[in-house]
Design a protein around this nucleic acid. Structure first.
Lengths: 153, 153
DNA sequence: CGCTTGCTTGGAGTGCGCTCCAGGGTTTTA
DNA sequence: TAAAACCCTGGAGCGCACTCCAAGCAAGCG
């Protein structure tokens, strides 16, 4: 019988990563170790590879994936980019550029700079939202328990 | 034959809102005016209403929607909350609380404060990403055109 | 009057980013 | 050596937030 992969062993008390990386040379992590490192599911890791967001991962003699420290580095970057809301397709594009070699250097640079601008814009948007939220919160706080009935703005 | 609703009249040179609100009392906007104000599609506006994210919008004598300034205010707030990544379901919850009246006051307050915290956390995440991006960008910039082949981190 | 434009509805379809399943092989523990 | 735990694959399924469709009504214009 097959055991459910993602549901088993839910001892994670809010994603604490006690696991530490091994030094280069002994860095051959199984997929479940990478799950612990990244917080991604094994499904997602395999999917990333299929769509080309990861390089082809090294395999053990029996065909199981063995991730390296470099793979973890890459996954860290992907995780950061994911936080910015960058579509997976764009990250795949970046991954392709990396694979294509040094002549894609300029394009990669541009992509990073554009992303940087996007992140700055995103932060600004959020600051605007924060201002609105703070205004609303202070209205709620000021009004104490008196009926306010959602006018404001 | 029916005309496509969203594709027609694409004169928008990057979402410029020259349209101004009318004073309270004459504030009965058609759905397409609200589209201009908000950048949302008419489909989305109707969908928001169906799922309870909007109150039931006033209608003309022939059954067409007529939005008020208050509705626009609400859509502004919804837009801001959307930027934070708040799920639509949560916004619907907030809308319900507003409709239910003053006794939901406390819960609304809490929800706003929680959201505020989420936004702060989100901004922090983005700052972390920005740092990574800046590091990578400076590596690319420093290296000039020399082969770097994506080590870094 | 016919034509165009704009609005209405319920329900079906889409794209993204996973998420899971079935069925099988491998590795570790008891 | 048997059971449990872990890993493999291709492909199907899911949840979210829209997005669109088909058919039809209403108003304004020449």
């Amino acid at each position: 019988m097959t055991v459910m992969e993602t549901t088993g062993t839910r001892t994670d008390t809010c994603a604490a990563p006690p696991q530490n990386r091994r030094p280069d040379g002994e860095d051959r992590y199984t997929i479940s170790e990478v799950v612990d490192f990244t917080g991604l599911t094994a499904h997602t890791l395999r999917w990333y590879e299929r769509i080309g967001l990861m390089p082809h991962i090294d395999r053990s003699h029996t065909g199981q994936r063995r991730y390296t420290n470099r793979d973890l580095d890459w996954l860290d970057l992907v995780g950061k980019l994911r936080l910015t809301g960058m579509p997976v397709a764009d990250m795949v594009r970046y991954a392709e550029l990396v694979r294509e070699g040094d002549h894609t250097y300029g394009e990669r640079f541009e992509l990073l700079k554009t992303t940087r601008e996007d992140v700055l814009a995103r932060i600004d948007e959020l600051r605007g939202t924060l201002a609105v939220l703070d205004k609303k919160i202070s209205i709620y706080a000021d009004a104490g328990r008196a009926p306010v009935s959602e006018r404001s703005r």
